[in-house]
Write a protein that binds this DNA or RNA. Structure first.
Length: 723
DNA sequence: GCTTAGGATTGG
C-alpha cells in the first residue's frame, strides 16, 4: 500500500501485549481519483521496533510504502469513522519504506514541505548565525534552470551539508518552501536531511552525509547521473577552471586546493597556514617569519627555497575551522585573495611578493574546509606533490655539511642563462664592483635561498664573518686532476722531511748527472748539487739544479742564488724525490708541491732536453710530478636585512683580491694585502652596521654530495674596488 | 519547535 502519512501518534506501551511498544498513524490514499471515495484514510498500528523506527524517521506528509501488514477489524471505527479495518505492522516480514518524491525546482509551491535534487551553484560553508545555530547558505538549480536559494540552520556543524565545490549535487529532504524577494526559497524543517555527491560525470556516485540513517537507492543514482549530465553542458560549471600556485596572478580571488604543511597562531584574529600544492609560483612568494617553536608542523625551508610554500593568513571567523586543521591535511580555501605585498625588510628595487589572505566574513563563499584524503578532487594535487618526494627537509644546511663544502672544492660552476630582468643600477657605495656582463636581477638573500639552482644573481650584502679566521689558512693546494685540496704544509712538517732525508746520506751517483759535493757543518752530512749532463753547454745550464743533503733552511738560502732547486735524496745510490709532503721545487720565493695521489714519479729516467726556460710546469713534467696549484678559499657569511647566507670565494678569489695565489704564497706583502682587504670588509671589533656593503655576483648551484643535492653559493665576477 | 539568513569581497 502506498499512502501519505496524515497523522502520526506517539510511541506508547501496550498493556494488552506485555508492554510492547506501539504507535498509531493515519495514512491517506494518494491517488487523486480515489480521494472522492469513502474511507480513503485508514489507521496503521506499528509494533515493537517498527513503532520506534517509524516514529523517528517518518513525518507527517511523507509518502510511505507498507508491505506484509495484517488487516484487522478497527476497534475505533465507531468513534473515528475512519475505516472499518486497520493495518497492523508486526513481525519480521512487515516493512515500511519512505517514498520520497522529488519536485522540480520550477514546480515548487509556497509553504509546502518538499524533497528536491539540485546542482549547487553557490554555497557558503556553515557560519554562526545571529541566532542559536550555524547557517549554511546555498543556491541550487536543476534541469528546469530555475535557481533556488536555500538556508540550512543547525546547531551541529556535522549536520550541515558537505559541499566541496560549485557543481556538487545535493539532495534535500523535508525542506519547506517559501517566497522571498519574488523567488522561491528553501528552509530545512523537521526531520530534514541532506546528502551531497560529487558533480563530475565520471566519478562514482558516493553519497556524502553525516546522517545516521538515510535512504539511497538506484533511483537516487539515476537522479545524480542525470543532473551531472545536464550540468556538464552548462557553461557556468564547465568554466570552473582550477587555479594552482603556478597559475595564480596578483589580485585574484580564487579557490585553492592544497596541503597544510605547518601552522602558527599569529594573534587572536589571525592564523598563518603554510600550504603547498606542488606547483611553483611564478611570483616570489611572501614568507611570513615565525619562530620555529611557534610553528606546528614540519619546517618548510626547502620548499620555501623553491618558491613552493604559500603563506596564507587566515582571519577572524575562519579561525574556528583553521585552528582544528592538522599539518598534512588536504584542504581547500574558497575566495582566497592573492595580492602583491612589500616585505617589511625588502630592498627598494626588488619585486613585490605574493601574499595570500583569507579575509574575515563569508562574502562570495569565503572560507576553508578540509578535504578527505580520498577525494577525487585531490588526484592532480597528489601527483604534483609526488614529484617533490625528494624534497626532504633533512636537506637543510647544517654545520656538518658546511664543513664538507669547506673541505671539498665544488665542481665546476654551472652558470645558467641570465635572467632577462632590468634591475636598477645600485646607487649606494660598495667596496666591491661586479665585473659580470649579464644583467641579472638583484635579490635579497632570503630570496636567493628560496631560488632553485642553477642560477646567477646579484646581491647586496655585508660580510658578517668569514672562515678561516687565520687568513694564512685560506691558501690551499689544489690538484686539478683529482680535485684534492690540502692546506699548505707548514715549515715544521717540511723541515722534518728534509732532516730525515739528509740523515746518513751518501751522495747519489747518476749517469745523467754531473755532481759536486761539499761537507756540511754537521759531521757525516754531505751537501751535493747535481746538474743534468744534457743541459751542460745549453742556455738552460744552471737553470735546474738537484740538491741533496740540505736542511730546509739551507735550501732556502741556496734558492736566493739559483732559479730552480729540486731537493733529492739517495736511495741505494739512485736519485729520488723527497716525500711529496715537502715541495718538489724551490723557485725563488716560491715552493711548488706535487700531488701525492697523481704524481707518477718517472724520475728514474728523466728527460731534460728541448726545454728553453724551466718553470714549475716543465720541471713537474720532467719529473713525472702532478703539480698542485695554489688557490685561495674563503667562506663568507653574508647578511642583508632578510637573511644570512654562506657563500664561498673560490674560483673567483684571485680576481676578487687582485692577488695571485701563487704569488701570495711567497710574498708577505701580498698576504698583508689580503689581510687588509678582509679587515676592511669585516673590520675587527666592529658592529655589522660598520661593515661596508658589497655588491656581489652570486652563483647558486647544486652539488651532489652522497647522492643528495646540496645547494652551494659562490661569489663570482666580483672584485675589490681599488682607488 | 522561536530565531537565525535571504550570496555580492578585506582593507590585516
Amino acid at each position: 500500500m502506498k499512502a501519505k502519512v496524515v497523522h502520526k501518534g506517539p510511541v506508547i506501551s501496550c498493556a494488552q501485549k506485555d508492554g510492547v511498544e506501539m504507535l498509531r498513524a493515519e495514512i491517506r490514499e494518494e491517488d487523486p481519483l480515489q480521494r472522492a471515495a469513502e474511507h480513503t484514510s485508514i489507521n496503521v498500528i506499528f509494533f515493537g521496533t517498527l513503532a520506534k523506527d517509524f516514529s523517528q524517521s517518518a513525518r507527517q506528509g511523507d509518502v510511505v510504502l507498507l508491505t506484509d501488514f495484517t488487516i484487522k477489524k478497527s476497534p475505533s471505527f465507531l468513534r473515528d469513522r475512519l475505516h472499518p479495518c486497520q493495518l497492523e505492522m508486526d513481525g519480521d516480514s512487515a516493512c515500511v519504506y519512505a517514498k520520497y518524491t522529488y519536485v522540480s525546482l520550477n514546480k515548487l509551491k509556497p509553504k509546502t514541505v518538499v524533497n528536491v535534487y539540485g546542482v549547487v551553484t553557490f554555497f557558503k560553508q556553515p557560519f554562526p548565525s545571529k541566532g542559536s545555530d550555524y547557517c549554511s547558505t546555498l543556491k541550487i538549480t536543476d534541469q528546469s534552470d530555475v535557481k533556488v536559494g536555500c538556508n540550512i540552520f543547525s546547531k551541529k556543524l556535522e549536520d550541515h551539508p558537505v559541499i566541496f565545490r560549485a557543481g556538487d549535487i545535493i539532495r534535500l529532504h523535508r525542506f519547506k518552501t517559501d517566497v522571498f524577494r519574488d523567488s522561491m526559497s528553501l528552509l530545512n524543517t523537521y526531520g530534514w536531511s541532506t546528502v551531497t555527491f560529487d558533480g563530475k560525470t565520471d566519478s562514482p556516485v558516493v553519497p556524502r552525509t553525516s546522517s545516521k540513517s538515510f535512504h539511497f537507492e538506484e533511483s537516487d543514482k539515476r537522479m545524480v547521473q542525470e543532473l551531472r549530465q545536464w550540468a556538464a553542458n552548462q557553461s557556468w560549471i564547465s568554466s570552473d577552471l582550477t587555479v594552482t600556485l603556478s597559475s595564480v596572478q596578483p589580485g585574484m580571488y580564487f579557490d585553492l586546493t592544497c596541503q597544510l604543511l605547518a601552522k602558527a597562531v599569529m594573534d587572536s584574529r589571525c592564523i598563518l597556514l603554510k600550504v603547498w600544492d606542488g606547483t611553483k609560483c611564478q611570483h616570489p612568494l611572501l614568507n611570513v617569519a615565525v619562530a620555529s617553536d611557534a610553528l606546528e608542523g614540519e619546517s618548510t625551508v626547502a620548499k620555501d627555497r623553491m618558491n613552493l610554500t604559500a603563506n596564507v593568513l587566515v582571519y577572524d571567523n575562519h579561525l574556528e575551522v583553521a585552528r582544528d586543521l592538522k599539518p598534512g591535511t588536504f584542504l581547500r580555501f574558497y575566495n582566497l585573495h592573492a595580492y602583491l605585498q612589500r616585505a617589511p625588510d625588502q630592498l627598494p628595487d626588488q619585486p613585490d611578493h605574493l601574499s595570500f589572505h583569507l579575509h574575515g566574513g563569508t562574502s562570495y563563499g569565503r572560507g576553508l574546509r578540509s578535504l578527505p584524503a580520498e577525494s577525487p578532487d585531490l588526484q592532480s594535487l597528489k601527483s604534483a606533490l609526488d614529484k617533490h618526494v625528494d624534497l626532504d627537509e633533512n636537506d637543510e644546511v647544517n654545520d656538518g655539511t658546511l664543513l664538507e663544502i669547506w673541505y671539498t672544492p665544488p665542481e665546476a660552476v654551472v652558470l645558467p642563462n641570465d635572467e632577462e630582468t632590468d634591475a636598477e643600477a645600485d646607487t649606494g657605495p660598495s667596496y666591491t664592483v661586479r665585473t659580470c656582463e649579464h644583467n641579472s636581477q638583484r635579490l635579497t638573500l632570503a630570496r636567493v635561498k628560496r631560488s632553485t639552482p642553477p642560477l646567477s644573481c646579484h646581491v647586496r650584502a655585508r660580510v658578517k664573518r668569514y672562515k678561516p679566521q687565520q687568513l694564512y689558512q685560506c691558501l690551499k693546494l689544489f690538484c686539478s686532476n683529482c680535485k684534492t685540496m690540502i692546506d699548505v704544509p707548514d715549515d715544521s712538517a717540511v723541515s722534518k722531511v728534509f732532516r730525515e732525508s739528509a740523515k746518513d746520506n751518501q751522495p747519489c751517483d747518476e749517469q745523467w748527472a754531473a755532481t759536486s759535493s761539499a761537507s756540511s757543518r754537521e759531521p757525516g752530512r754531505t751537501i751535493s748539487m747535481h746538474i743534468s749532463r744534457d743541459m751542460v753547454g745549453e742556455s738552460t745550464h744552471m737553470q735546474l739544479i738537484f740538491v741533496e743533503g740540505t736542511t730546509l733552511d739551507e735550501i732556502c738560502v741556496l734558492s736566493r742564488d739559483y732559479k730552480n732547486l729540486v731537493p733529492v735524496r739517495s736511495v741505494n745510490g739512485r736519485m729520488t724525490l723527497l716525500d711529496l709532503t715537502a715541495p718538489f721545487l724551490f723557485s725563488g720565493d716560491k715552493r711548488y708541491y706535487g700531488c701525492k695521489r697523481c704524481s707518477l714519479n718517472t724520475f728514474q729516467n728523466p728527460v731534460f732536453t728541448g726545454v728553453e726556460t724551466w718553470d714549475e710546469q716543465s720541471v713537474a713534467e720532467a719529473l713525472g710530478v702532478q703539480l698542485m696549484q695554489y688557490r685561495l678559499l674563503i667562506q663568507f657569511e653574508l647578511e642583508d636585512k632578510t637573511d644570512t647566507l654562506e657563500a664561498l670565494l673560490w674560483e673567483n678569489a684571485e680576481k676578487f683580491f687582485h692577488v695571485s695565489a701563487v704569488d701570495a704564497s711567497g710574498s708577505q706583502d701580498l698576504q698583508d694585502k689580503i689581510q687588509t682587504i678582509m679587515d676592511t670588509i669585516q673590520p675587527p671589533d666592529s658592529s655589522l652596521e660598520e661593515h661596508p656593503w658589497l655588491d656581489l655576483c652570486l652563483s647558486v648551484y647544486a652539488v651532489k654530495d652522497n647522492d643528495r643535492n646540496q645547494v652551494c653559493y659562490q661569489i663570482a665576477n666580483t672584485e675589490i674596488r681599488e682607488e
